[in-house]
Deep mutational scan, measured.
Amino acid sequence: YFQGQLNAMAHQIQEMFPQVPYHLVLQDLQLTRSVEITTDNILEGRI
């Protein structure tokens, strides 16, 4: 994955969860590489 793709995914998640800091979303995406998994992590309070 290149950074631009991760940034696009992070923006997509931020639209759904504007209360979660962008850098935390991006940090999780770098591990998961998945909008779905990061979204689940937010919903389950891991982020």
Rank of each mutant, 00 (worst) to 15 (best):
F2Y: 10
D28F: 06
S34H: 03
L31K: 13
Q3C: 13
Q12K: 12
P18M: 02
Q30W: 14
Q3N: 10
N7V: 14
Y1D: 15
Q12I: 12
I37H: 08
M9D: 05
A8K: 10
V25P: 00
I13N: 00
F17V: 01
G45Q: 05
G45R: 05
G4R: 10
F2M: 11
M9K: 05
D40R: 15
D40Q: 15
L43P: 00
Q30L: 14
Q14A: 12
Y22Q: 12
A8T: 09
I37R: 11
E15N: 09
A8V: 09
G4H: 14
F17S: 00
L6G: 02
G45V: 04
V25M: 04
A8Q: 11
L31H: 13
E15L: 13
P18C: 06
E36R: 12
N7S: 11
H11Q: 13
E36D: 10
E15H: 12
I42H: 00
H23G: 06
P18T: 03
D40L: 14
V35S: 06
I13V: 09
L31Y: 10
T38Q: 01
V20M: 08
H11R: 12
T39M: 12
N41C: 13
Q3D: 15
L6M: 08
R33D: 06
L29Q: 00
Q14Y: 12
Q27W: 12
Q27E: 13
T38P: 01
L6D: 03
L31C: 14
Q5D: 14
Y1G: 15
P18L: 04
Q3K: 09
E36L: 10
D28K: 00
S34F: 02
T38L: 00
Q19F: 14
Q12W: 10
V35T: 06
V25T: 03
L29P: 00
T32I: 00
L43W: 05
F2D: 15
Q12S: 09
L29R: 00
L24M: 10
D28T: 02
A8E: 13
Q5C: 14
R33H: 14
I37Q: 12
Y22H: 14
V35Q: 06
Q12L: 11
N41L: 03
Q5H: 11
